[in-house]
Write a protein that binds this DNA or RNA. Structure first.
Lengths: 319, 319
DNA sequence: TTGAAAGCGCTAACAA
DNA sequence: TTGTTAGCGCTTTCAA
């Protein structure tokens, strides 16, 4: 009766008696016992498959958590430290506790080996993908993000744009760079004439690469960075060299990192990586009754224009 | 037998047979059923009691998770969004699922109202405290952190140190400021003669306050910041004003924020807030058989000296 | 409309 | 040393 089983009949009097007892005794059903009986624990396993447990995981978990709460589920969290062995092990732990479903998330978007055990329950890949797409995957549309942020700079009038990339081996790096080149070509420019320097997503690589860049003559009018941390490093390097942002050089970040991109001065123009939304989406895909969309779902990353970008000085002088 | 119950006897032959069956059938005990039977689910509830789910929560969870795995426990995670009502509600959810113990964590160190339900299982407060200390609390030793970072600047020879604080209403802000003043007095200086400006822990407040500060004449030889984000803001403001760090001004951060303090240029001297260690400690306190240390446990925050601090120019010139 | 009973998968206690 | 049984708290089915 407490579960409102359909097609049940109960007298009003008894209902009152039951309800009163419930409040009097402060009765709360034991969900472990419920789970045992119904084979459903209202618990979703969240596997963070990475060495670090940082900004991304936190944001994605926040989103997933929100959706879960709405569905009456709770998140059982594990962190694999990036090890496949540990991943398989922990997924075992999750399944032993009868998790109803799994979210398998990576920080650096990449290809992962999904342990077989994960296929025993509904699973969604978050910010990663596996060979042959055995389960749905949710990914940011990095090519588009790279393209549209470059386009934003082109629209401002920039024609000499340098790109300080993140770690070249990463999927996201390649995708963003592809978008960068697509946009340049779309504007009738030759990508080969634009400087591309390889970094590693750390702030200091932004700093170092800017210094390398400034040895060139003349410097580009705009600089795209692999992420916001690199952009902050670039900002520091440019300022130190006596250049003003955005008056002398425009800087574009990526990620819209929480408590960084918007707070730095000048506030960074960047591309928003919607981690909370992706986490939410993952949890919603797992809700019972929702048809899972197979294959890869690309999530749009909108460009956010703030104060680190402006028309290039040449154009401005002319106007 | 699989649980290695003590004082049991079993023939070698049967043991082999059982073990073989286990591997053959790939048998895994259902831990939900186990939990029902033993009244122990090997699950610890982690309550993040804050609006945001960022750096701190991630680091603390990472530490707690590590310790949990070692103990064979898993973390059941909830985020209250900072609402007491939601906290009570979610703790109910956790207890309904028979969580064995709770870690109740806040991001901004502060006083919290612990829902009564939490007292029904072993609970540890992480980075927060409650009136009358009903359960053990683990807190960073902010006074000491403030004192020792100030002392580090004094040791370098600085005698004119400004403090750009975090949000004045916060416990941590007051504690660090107290440490700052203690250190000054300890060096025979008068705290009233040192500029203290109130910020809010956001990077832009570091930037804004530095600009205010630079209207003074002469500027201080060293600047303490409420946290690393403010320090980054300060760095940007100083550079923009044509001042060099640390040649002209030393800058001290706080937090040793992951992927920020060490990566920025110059790398920030700062105070390490050992969140992962605190999370680990919390989980270990909850391990069965460990005597819980009542009251508040203050965790030391060591000063980390990097490149944003140096002896003041005057001293250097003299030497 | 209500009550009784079986059983989810496991463990602990007891008999054989 | 091994096998059997009761029961954790719940839901579902069936009988009254």
């Amino acid at each position: 009766m407490l579960n409102q089983t359909v097609g049940q009949t109960i007298s009003d009097e008894t209902r009152q008696r039951v309800l009163q007892a419930v409040t009097e005794l402060d009765y709360r059903p034991n969900r472990a016992a419920q789970g045992l009986r119904q084979g459903r624990t209202a618990t979703i396993g969240f596997v963070s498959h990475d060495a670090d447990f940082g900004e991304f995981a936190a944001s994605a978990i926040k989103g997933a958590h929100e959706a879960c709460i709405r569905q009456g589920n709770l998140l059982l969290l594990v962190n694999t430290g990036g090890s496949n062995r540990q991943a398989a092990h922990l997924i075992g732990d999750l399944l032993d506790r009868q998790a109803d479903a799994l979210i398998f998330a990576a920080v650096g978007t990449r290809s992962v080996v999904l342990p077989d055990a994960a296929l025993r329950v509904p699973t969604v890949l978050l910010n990663c993908f596996a060979a042959n797409d055995p389960v749905p995957a949710i990914l940011p549309d990095e090519v588009r993000g790279g393209r549209e942020s470059t386009q934003a700079l082109l629209d401002l009038g920039h024609r000499d744009i340098a790109y300080l990339t993140g770690k070249p081996s990463q999927w996201a790096t390649k995708a963003r760079l592809r978008g960068f080149r697509e946009a340049l070509r779309g504007a009738g420019l030759n990508p080969a004439e634009h400087t591309v320097l390889s970094g590693n997503y750390h702030a200091d690589s932004g700093y170092d690469l800017v210094r390398t860049l400034l040895q060139r003559n003349p410097p580009p009018t705009a600089i795209m960075c692999g992420n916001d941390r690199m952009a902050v490093g670039a900002l520091l390097g440019l300022l130190e060299a006596g250049l003003r942002v955005p008056e002398d050089v425009s800087v574009m970040g990526y990620d819209d990192q929480f408590q960084l991109a918007a707070e730095v001065r000048p506030a960074l123009s960047t591309v928003l990586l919607p981690y909370p939304g992706m986490g939410r989406l993952a949890a919603e895909q797992l809700a019972i009754g929702v048809p899972t969309s197979p294959g890869r779902t690309l999530v749009h990353c909108p460009v956010v224009m703030r104060d680190s970008t402006a028309p290039p000085a040449r154009t401005r002088a002319r106007s």
